[in-house]
Design a protein around this nucleic acid. Structure first.
Length: 469
DNA sequence: AAAAAAT
C-alpha cells in the first residue's frame, strides 16, 4: 500500500498545487526579525508622562480603521514604536527578545489605550495573524503589581490549545520579569481544596476558571483588574461558553478593565458585546480582504466521502513544502480520515487532534506537528481559531464549516483558512464539495467575502490530475 | 456538531 502511495507521489506531474507550494516557498518565509539594541531608561511609566509620550507619537488614523468611542472628540493615540509605550524596561526587553521590532497595526492602535490610565474597556477586531495575542498579553503584563500576591489578570480562551499558546507568549514576554507568576487554569491542572492562588496572571478555559474561582474560592474574581476574552465572539455568543463567561464577568469589580479580541464579530454579536461591556472603545481593522488576498481559494468536486478521501490523498502526495491542516465537521470523521491515511502513509506521518484525546495527547500531537514531523494534521473546529504554526500553507476543508441551522459559517471559515497566510504570508485553501448542498454553502461563503473560490478540476485543467477522482 | 468542568 505504502509503495503504491510513494510511486503515485513520485510520478505525480507538476500540478497546480505543487506549483503553488513552490510559489509559496519563494515568497513565503520571511523571518527577518532583528531586534534593535534597546536603549532603555528606567523611568516608571507614570500616567502624565505616559500621556505626554503617547501624544508625541500621535499619528493620524487611516481609513482602514474604524474606531468608536464615547467622546468622539477625545484624541486617540497611536504609537509607531514599542519605546513610545514607555513600558517597564524588563518588559520592553522581553518584547524585543521575542523578535518584535515595530508594533503591528492593531498593536500601535490598541496598546496606548489599553495601558493608559484610567483603564478603559476595549472591543477590538483585527484579522487573523496580525498580532492580537501579543497586544493583549503586553497590556495584561503592564497592569501586574508584583508587590501583591494574588491573581490580578484573567485571560479566557475557548480551547485548551489556545490557552497554552497564549500562556507561552506571556511567559516569553515576561522573561525578564521573573517576579511575575503565570498560572494555567485548564484541564489537567489541579488544585486542592483550600488552596489560595498567589499567581498574578491566570490564563485558562472557562470551565476550569469557574471551578477554581467560584467553587474552590482559590482566588477572588472581584480583585481582578484586567479581564481578557480571546476569540471574544465565540466566548460571549456560543452556547456553552457564553453562560460560563457571563457568570464570571458578573463577579468582576466594576473597575475591572475588559478587553475583547477577535478576528470576527457577527453584527449581532458585536451588538451584544457592546451591550455587556460598559462604555467600550471599539476598534475594527476592517481589512478582511487582505487575509483573503494572501490565500488562494479552491474547491474540488467529489462524488462522496471516499472521493473526498482520494482528494486528500492526492493533496498529501503533492505537498512538498510546508504543512497542511485538514478540518472535519466531527471527531468521528477526523478519526476515520486519520485512520485511513495512517494505513496508507504510516501513522507517524499524519496527526489527528480532537476533543476525543486527553490533554496530554493533545499537547503531544500539537508539539509534534509544530516541530514539523508531520506534513498534515487532521482536526475539528477545536483548532479553527488562533493556533499559530508558521509552516502551515495549506488548509483543507474536508467538510465546510456550517452552523447549527446547516448554513454557511463564514466566521469559522475565515478563522480556519486564517491558519495559513499569517503575517502576510501566502497560503492555499481547498474546499471539498460532494453535494449540491455543499456547493450552495460554498457559493454563500464566496458571496459573503466577495472573493472567488476557483474550481480545481481535471476537466477544466489538463495539468491537474487525480484530484478527487 | 464541537468545545468546555468533573461526575
Amino acid at each position: 500500500m505504502t509503495d503504491n502511495w510513494n510511486k503515485a507521489a513520485e510520478t505525480q506531474e507538476l500540478t497546480e498545487i505543487q506549483r503553488l507550494s513552490e510559489d509559496i516557498n519563494e515568497i513565503g518565509i520571511n523571518n527577518e526579525h532583528k531586534p534593535p539594541p534597546a536603549e532603555l531608561d528606567d523611568n516608571p511609566a507614570d500616567a502624565s508622562l505616559l500621556m505626554k509620550i503617547i501624544r508625541k507619537g500621535l499619528i493620524d488614523t487611516k481609513n482602514d480603521l474604524d474606531i468608536q468611542r464615547k467622546d468622539p472628540n477625545s484624541p486617540l493615540y497611536s504609537v509607531k514604536s514599542f519605546e513610545a509605550l514607555h513600558l517597564k524596561p524588563e518588559l520592553l526587553k522581553g518584547v524585543y527578545a521575542m523578535g518584535y521590532n515595530t508594533p503591528s497595526k492593531i498593536q500601535e492602535t490598541a496598546l496606548p489605550t489599553l495601558i493608559a490610565d484610567p483603564p478603559q474597556n476595549m472591543i477590538a477586531q483585527s484579522q487573523s495573524g496580525t498580532g492580537k495575542t501579543a497586544a493583549f498579553t503586553l497590556a495584561m503584563l503592564t497592569r501586574v503589581d508584583t508587590t501583591k500576591d494574588y491573581p490580578q489578570v484573567l485571560c479566557l480562551s475557548p480551547t485548551y490549545e489556545l490557552a497554552i499558546q497564549t500562556g507561552e507568549v506571556a511567559a516569553r514576554m515576561a522573561k525578564f520579569c521573573p517576579d511575575i507568576s503565570i498560572r494555567y487554569a485548564v484541564r489537567g491542572e489541579e488544585i486542592s481544596r483550600g488552596d489560595k492562588l498567589k499567581d498574578h496572571v491566570i490564563i485558562g478555559t472557562p470551565g476550569k476558571v469557574l471551578d477554581w474561582s467560584l467553587k474552590f474560592r482559590a482566588f477572588d474574581l472581584s480583585k481582578i483588574i484586567v479581564f481578557v476574552l480571546d476569540e471574544a465572539d465565540v466566548m460571549i455568543a456560543q452556547q456553552g461558553h457564553q453562560d460560563q463567561c457571563i457568570r464570571l464577568q458578573k463577579h468582576l469589580s466594576k473597575k475591572c478593565q475588559m478587553m475583547l479580541f477577535s478576528a470576527t464579530y457577527e453584527k449581532k454579536v458585536m451588538d451584544f458585546a457592546e451591550f455587556i461591556v460598559p462604555s467600550p472603545i471599539t476598534i475594527r481593522l476592517k481589512k478582511e480582504e487582505e487575509v483573503l488576498d494572501n490565500i488562494k481559494q479552491y474547491y474540488v468536486k467529489c462524488r462522496g466521502q471516499d472521493d473526498k478521501y482520494r482528494a486528500i490523498a492526492n493533496i498529501y502526495g503533492v505537498i512538498t513544502i510546508g504543512q497542511a491542516i485538514i478540518f472535519c465537521h466531527t471527531r468521528k470523521t477526523a478519526g476515520w480520515l486519520a485512520g485511513k491515511m495512517s494505513n496508507e502513509v504510516g501513522s507517524e506521518s499524519v496527526g489527528v487532534l480532537s476533543g476525543d484525546l486527553t490533554v496530554e495527547q493533545r499537547l503531544a500531537v500539537l508539539d509534534r506537528f509544530r516541530e514539523g514531523h508531520q506534513k498534515c494534521l487532521i482536526t475539528t473546529n477545536v483548532l479553527s481559531r488562533g493556533i499559530d504554526i508558521d509552516q502551515v500553507n495549506i488548509v483543507v476543508n474536508f467538510d465546510l464549516p456550517i452552523d447549527q441551522q446547516g448554513n454557511a459559517d463564514c466566521e469559522t471559515y475565515l478563522h480556519r483558512i486564517g491558519r495559513t497566510g499569517r503575517f502576510g504570508k501566502h497560503g492555499i485553501a481547498i474546499n471539498l464539495i460532494d453535494s449540491e448542498q455543499c456547493m450552495r454553502i460554498c457559493r454563500d461563503i464566496e458571496k459573503h467575502f466577495g472573493k472567488k473560490i476557483m474550481l480545481l478540476d481535471a476537466e477544466n485543467s489538463d495539468e491537474i490530475e487525480k484530484i478527487g477522482t
